[in-house]
Computed example of a mutant assay.
Amino acid sequence: MKSEGDDDALSWDGDDALDARRPEVSRPKPEPTASAAPVPPLNESPSASVTPSVSEADADDEPQGISTATLLMIGILGGIYLLYTVGWILGGVGMQLPVTFTLPVPLYQGALWLAVLAPALWFVAVLAATRGSRSWVRIVWLVAGAVLLVPWPFVVSGGGGAL
C-alpha cells in the first residue's frame, strides 16, 4: 500500500501548476455517455456546433521545438563562427603592418572590426531571419556563411602572422 508521503517524495514544488494546465494528464477522462453530448442551439445545425477537444487545442498552443540534430548543427556552426572571429583577429592584426603602407590606419582598423564582427552578425542575422523557416533552410544559410566568412589572412599566413 502506498501512502501520500511516498508520492510527495517523487514530486517537486510547482507540479500542481503543471498538472492544472494539462487536465488530460492529471485526471482520467470520463467515459462518454449519451447525455454528455452537447446540444446545439435551435438556430444552428448539428454540424456547426463541433468543438475541438482539449488535447487538440493544447497541441496547437504548444510551440514546436527544434530537433536534436538541428540543435547540434547550430552549436557546431556557432563554434566555427567563434573560431572565425578569433581567426579574423589574429590574421588582421598580423597583416596590419604590411597593409598600412597602402591604406590609412583608420580605414584598416574599421575594416578589421567589420571583419571581426561579421561572423557573429551573420550568425545572429540567420537565426533571426529564419525563425519561422524549416531547419534545413537555417542550416544551409549557416553553412553558406561559414564558406563565405573564412578568415583568409589567418589561413594564408598559417596562423603565424600575429605570433
Rank of each mutant, 00 (worst) to 15 (best):
4 E>V: 14
93 V>I: 15
37 A>E: 09
26 S>N: 13
9 A>T: 04
3 S>C: 07
12 W>C: 10
155 V>E: 04
3 S>H: 10
86 V>L: 15
55 S>N: 07
19 D>G: 15
6 D>F: 10
12 W>N: 11
73 M>C: 07
98 P>T: 06
11 S>R: 15
25 V>M: 10
96 Q>T: 13
37 A>G: 00
11 S>V: 10
38 P>Q: 04
126 V>F: 04
62 E>K: 14
16 D>G: 15
18 L>N: 10
88 W>N: 11
100 T>E: 09
60 D>A: 14
98 P>W: 04
84 Y>A: 03
129 A>W: 11
131 R>Y: 10
60 D>E: 14
126 V>Y: 02
135 S>K: 05
101 F>Y: 10
64 Q>E: 12
76 I>F: 15
46 P>W: 11
7 D>N: 08
85 T>P: 01
32 P>Y: 03
36 A>R: 10
28 P>F: 07
142 L>A: 08
97 L>T: 14
158 G>L: 06
122 W>S: 04
84 Y>N: 00
105 V>G: 01
15 D>C: 09
76 I>R: 01
20 A>K: 07
111 A>C: 01
82 L>I: 09
102 T>P: 02
99 V>N: 01
59 A>D: 13
105 V>R: 06
108 Y>E: 06
71 L>W: 10
112 L>C: 03
105 V>M: 11
149 L>T: 05
51 T>M: 13
82 L>A: 15
57 A>N: 06
34 A>R: 11
40 P>N: 09
68 T>W: 12
98 P>N: 06
146 A>F: 02
132 G>F: 02
92 G>Y: 05
31 E>C: 02
17 A>S: 08
47 S>D: 15
97 L>R: 10
129 A>Y: 08
42 L>N: 12
126 V>P: 02
